[in-house]
Design a protein around this nucleic acid. Structure first.
Lengths: 218, 218
DNA sequence: GTCTATAACGGGATAGAC
DNA sequence: GTCTATCCCGTTATAGAC
């Protein structure tokens, strides 16, 4: 248990910076070269450190990977600066609408196509983190909660304004959205030709009472 | 590469039987005690063989696990005897309706709650199998295709009879269903309290034009 | 702070006895 | 057909030099 926190002492500043640099680099490497049960060694090579050198900054492999995920979320989340919000509960509930959710989702899908390794890592960890003992368990729980809150808020707003079918509870619908996102991701990993956009677009269409809903809000 | 096929010679009969017994036993153990990156050794112990003894029947660890999954599918698939159909393309397309899909799904959900280890193994492998080189890759592709075909057929029928919203292409909807099933499974693994049924019920509700659709067909 | 070297372990696979 | 024994590999983690 070394410096798991973000620099509580002045002299840690350098170390923290290096940590960040390592994470950024690792993210980059995994994104491009893929994650095939990546070992600390592999990552160390990519980062330009020895295995021991890398573990100097992270207490264990699992902590390292959890940090990588967290960093990824920090960099590109649903919108642009959503990630902070996801973790702390959203700040400005009002200017969230389904168009934003949709746009954000499309952006993520587009981006993910460029970083298959990260997607793989993410999927892998989300399964492993099912174990309550796993270091990333809480991370995934919180991430899911925040994400659903974000979506549910948008849905509730849409229902209030009559744009969205109000038969379904917003929280339930949010779960549905999350499930579809994760599930389609899985299908895409298995068969990269599938178009995640179509399925999600269908879901959007299903929740709109009107027949033709191309974009924008009513 | 030993006897990967099902008994091509008479004298293999015993071996095949033993294989089956091993798989059944392994399934049972994983179901109850969970799958935590299970090793061949662990499984061998559970089955009452040595590691080498077990590998006498399976060429590699990965083949073993793929076989386990296949066996699971054989035993409990969506309906009762669906699995064979899934693999070979459905036989009787006519008597499939959404009620059957729904009932089948509910059955699986209920059953899965009793075998968390299997669910975990399945999820783990479906991620790993994204790699085209993975021995279970084709299995998952085929399984998905069959499953979606099954669902799409039911949907198409429902649309024809006016029970289902016909805005969405059946194949796309089928993907959506699969995604929801997989995605909810993931959420459930992370937080066992979530009720998979509710979300899927919501999806069913979304695709029915009518407000109150409790069960049965129109 | 970073390296080399190595410990300590566990994995899957294989050889060979029975 | 099954076991024991062993091999060889890769893993994480640590000790200690620089």
């Amino acid at each position: 248990m070394a410096q798991s926190e973000t620099g509580r002492r002045g002299s840690y500043a350098k170390g923290v910076a290096k940590r960040e640099e390592i994470l950024a680099r690792a993210l980059d490497v995994i994104a491009r070269e893929g994650y095939r049960g990546a070992s600390v060694k592999e990552l160390a090579d990519a980062v330009g450190l020895s295995q021991a050198g890398l573990l100097h900054y992270f207490d264990s492999k699992e902590e390292l990977f959890t940090e990588i995920l967290r960093k990824r979320d920090e960099l590109d989340s649903i919108g642009q600066g959503l990630s902070g919000d996801i973790e702390h509960g959203l700040t400005a509930d009002d200017d969230i609408d389904l168009a934003a959710v949709r746009a954000g989702y499309l952006g993520v899908v587009r981006h993910n196509a460029d970083v298959p390794g990260l997607v793989h890592l993410f999927a892998r960890l989300s399964v492993d983190a099912a174990d309550p003992e796993h270091p990333a368990h809480d991370y995934f729980v919180q991430r899911g909660t925040g994400l659903r809150h974000f979506i549910a808020t948008a849905i509730a707003a849409g229902q209030a304004s009559g744009d969205i079918d109000d038969r379904i509870d917003p929280d339930v619908l949010a779960r549905l959205f999350q499930a579809v996102a994760d599930g389609m991701q899985l299908q895409w990993m298995l068969e990269p030709d599938v178009d995640m956009t179509t399925a999600v677009g269908a879901l959007f269409e299903l929740i709109t009472p009107r027949p033709a809903g191309d974009a924008s809000r009513g």
